[in-house]
Amino acid sequence: MIKENYFNIICIILLLSVPFLGLILDEPYYITLATKVVILAIAGAGLNLVLGYGGFVSFGHAAFFGIGGYVSGILASHALNYYPIIEWPFIIEGTTQMLIILPLAMLISGGFAFLIGMLCLRTSGVYFIMITLAFAQMVYYFAISWPAYGGEDGLSVYLRNNFPGLNTMDGFSFFSICFVLLIFVLFIISRIVNSNFGLALQSAKQNPERVAAVGIEPIKVQLIAFVISGAITGLAGALYTDLNRFVSPSVLSWHTSGEIMVFVILGGTARLFGPLVGAALFIILEQFLGGITENWQFWLGFILIIVVLFAKGGIIGMIAKERRNG
């Protein structure tokens, strides 16, 4: 048993050591894997805000992940084809500048989170789970049947987007961008969680009536959290498109929602570093089991069931001492 903060520092050191190891051993694949972990951890961190701290289970975060991914893919493909996105009433050109794409991805997925959240937060419990899932499916089917951006086949972007001063096609530079963003996101989330707003959000999870009684509208707090959460997950989606240089409707599928949820729960819900630990473990399991057997998903399912049935509180819950809340 160790303190959660020490455990978090160990996690960061371990995570950072992987790409350096990749550089030393000349194994670029390690760097790609570490980048994938970082990006998925950002997505999980977004979900953790509503699922862990807010206590409402969104099964539709693939929508925000995918929307962020498509914002990046669409802007970049227009820029690479020199074809404006709209020509009337004024011309909007595509761009490959990350400093524009990433905030825009967050803005647009946050906007969708606002619309979806406004409808979904009218319900709670199981209804909330299913209706968020259904909205994500709606976006998914739209992406499949809308032919302009590749439809079912997806959209390839031949080059990663640019970042001033860095060569993003270099794996290590791209990892650094993602890593800095992850630390930034985790910092923001820890500030949110410990602010008045965060306390209201966590109280609304435990007792919405009391929160309402002291003059705070629980739905409003939850909606704001949902929008922030959607924007963060959208950021991860945009980075994921850059990592793969490809985006397809499969990032919008409900498996993605399930996987993001698995990261959060595997690591430990309402733990700041839970999503990072969960995503890392998931990727390690995927690589390790995938190397041993073709049917790795069977064993993954098996391990997940064991974790749910016997390891409450996820990995961090087993290792770290104190429980932060509720």
């Binding site: 997940l304 069931i305 749910v308």
Partner: peptide, 29 residues
């Protein structure tokens, strides 16, 4: 499996049955 989940919250149920999907699909394959 399912019997142990009735008293758990919906989150655990979603995760465990999601895992069951992976298990069943691979078993069929």
């Amino acid at each position: 499996i399912i019997r142990r989940l009735y008293k758990r919250d919906h989150l655990d149920q979603v995760l465990a049955t999601f895992a069951l999907i992976l298990l069943f699909s691979e078993a069929m394959r």
